[in-house]
Simulated assay, not measured.
Amino acid sequence: MAQGHYYVPHTAKWPIVGSIGLFVMMIGAASWLNQAAFGPWFTLAGSAIVLVMIFGWFSDVIRESQKGLYNEAVDGSFRQGMIWFIFSEVMFFAAFFGALFYARMFAVPWLGGEGTGAMTNELLFPEFDSAWPTAGPGQLGGGFETIPAFGLPLFNTLILLTSGLTITLAHWALKQGKRGALIAWMLATVALGVLFLYFQATEYVHAYQDLGLTLGSGIYGSTFFMLTGFHGLHVTLGTIMLIVITLRCMAGHFSKKNHFGWEAVAWYWHFVDVVWLGLFVFVYVL
């Protein structure tokens, strides 16, 4: 309904549905990590509920937008919401980058006897080599090899950088009203996102089967898979979002001046690109 100059949405069931889905998924993931038999099923069920919520809620928003219920005030609130959402994602990844920095620059050298860790080193881990990467004192995480930066990771970097270019060209086509070019560049961006995910999955299989690099490979394995894994999850979500707005482009939902739904996804995709550059440098190269 409308109140004054601002659209107030009707009562929606989606917030509670999303909360239930996230709760079930959290219980499932925690149980799965603790090897409970029901863990995978709860995780799958929670994920399915969250997906239903996402598609249902966004369908409602798209229908309301197409009906012309949103004005400039609503558009502004959407932009602010997306900005704060991306900021929260920046803080999310900053926590994991911070963990990597702390482990590499402070914790591992300290366990090796540097600074105030001299007595800890002598009493607990006298033979610990503080060189990076490490599986931990006593090689508790097992032996492993790292993935060379200038192989598949470099190729994936080029893929994501190219996708940033294609989505920028798509934006240019949208603002010029060139629908054919818009759809072509969007399809190219989607294809690059899928290609990135394929190569990342290939890298993970190689790491587990051939290199002995797993989530249990000490602090290096933990930080490697947490950072690259969560980034892969974001690329997956971003690719789904790209597919949705590509279909909307085909349906003619966006105009030269009214296309924030498209812009929001483009902002998110550029954020994903920037995070990967940080990952490539600090996880693979250095």
Rank of each mutant, 00 (worst) to 15 (best):
L111R: 07
G112D: 04
G112P: 02
G113F: 03
G113E: 08
G113K: 05
E114F: 14
G115T: 04
G115K: 12
T116Y: 09
T116D: 11
T116F: 12
T116W: 13
T116Q: 08
T116I: 15
G117Q: 00
G117E: 02
G117M: 06
A118I: 13
T120N: 00
T120S: 13
E122G: 09
E122L: 14
L123S: 03
L123K: 06
L124A: 14
L124S: 13
F125L: 04
F125S: 09
P126F: 01
P126L: 12
E127K: 11
E127M: 03
F128C: 11
S130V: 03
P133Q: 10
P133S: 07
T134L: 08
P137T: 07
G138Y: 13
G138A: 10
G138C: 10
L140I: 14
L140C: 04
G142M: 05
G142N: 11
G143Y: 10
G143Q: 11
F144L: 00
T146G: 11
T146Q: 07
P148S: 05
A149L: 05
F150A: 02
L152C: 01
L152G: 02
L152T: 05
F155D: 06
T157R: 02
T157I: 00
T157Y: 00
L158Y: 07
L158C: 10
S163P: 02
S163D: 05
I167M: 10
I167Y: 04
I167P: 02
T168H: 15
A170Y: 05
A170P: 11
A170G: 09
A170F: 06
W172V: 13
L174K: 13
K175F: 02
Q176F: 12
G177C: 04
K178G: 08
K178L: 11
K178W: 07
A181T: 12
I183A: 08
I183Y: 14
A184C: 06
A184D: 15
W185R: 13
W185G: 03
L187P: 02
L187M: 15
L187T: 12
L187G: 12
T189P: 09
A191M: 06
L192C: 10
V194R: 04
L195V: 08
L195F: 10
L195S: 14
F196A: 04
L197R: 01
L197G: 02
Y198F: 10
Q200N: 13
T202V: 09
E203V: 07
Y204N: 00
Y204G: 00
Y204M: 06
Y204P: 00
V205H: 04
V205D: 02
Y208D: 10
Y208F: 15
D210E: 15
L211K: 10
G212H: 12
G212K: 08
G212I: 03
G212D: 07
L213C: 09
T214V: 04
L215M: 15
